[in-house]
Design a protein around this nucleic acid. Sequence first.
DNA 1: ATGGCAATGTTTCATTGA
Length: 257
Amino acid sequence: MRIATWNVNSLNVRLPHVLDWLERNPVEVLALQETKVADDRFPAAELEAAGYRAHFIGQKTYNGVALLVRLATPASAIVADIPGFEDDQKRVVSATIDGVRVVCVYVPNGQAVGSDKYAYKLRWMSALKDWLAAELVVHPKLVVVGDFNVAPEDRDVHDPAAWEGQVLCSAAERDALRAIESIGLADAFRLFEQPPGSFTWWDYRMLGFQKGRGLRIDHVLVSDAIRSACTACTVDRDERKKKQPSDHAPVIATFAS
DNA sequence: ATGGCAATGTTTCATTGA
């Protein structure tokens, strides 16, 4: 089974990219973030025609997440949001897919260290951790994917000195991500040898991609019970080269069945 | 030189993202 995650920065704009990508990468699961589309306008029919059932929760303009699952792959127990956590923003959708609990998250950006949005981000990550810890008890085979908006280490940052202490890289955010991992989740990307300068997001400005100035902020976290089945985790950097790309590239994890 | 891009709705700017 292959599980991919991709912040598409508007599914309305990126639907052709997604359909094209799925045709070339017929993964069992594609988790999307920043769909920016209300549920009654979600392009479910187009995706179904491409062979994928969509499970989604969204809102206009901001946020919005989806799990696209191949029609032949069983999916059940769809849950939206973090149960018990009061939040107007649509950032989480989960499903049990072929025996694996898959959680798709869009962690808040945080805007700037010390801002209200930063406080919300830390509160949100804490709630996510508590909820995932309980989920892990019920679902030992757990995979949490998405845009975490945190670069875990300096090697995940093109210019660590310039980013030191900034939002996405601050100590409190890194601690919050480590706390999530501490419940029993491993960063699948780091289970394998990776080229230096591997990133998942590049700023649209300043020729960020062309200059290799990026961050690794999109992640696949795997529980102990499924970790040994994970055989690869890669970034599809080529997608960022395309015309009118998302500023994020897809991340793909492969699991032996 | 500390900007720069892209998407969206409140649209011809302001807001947000990262």
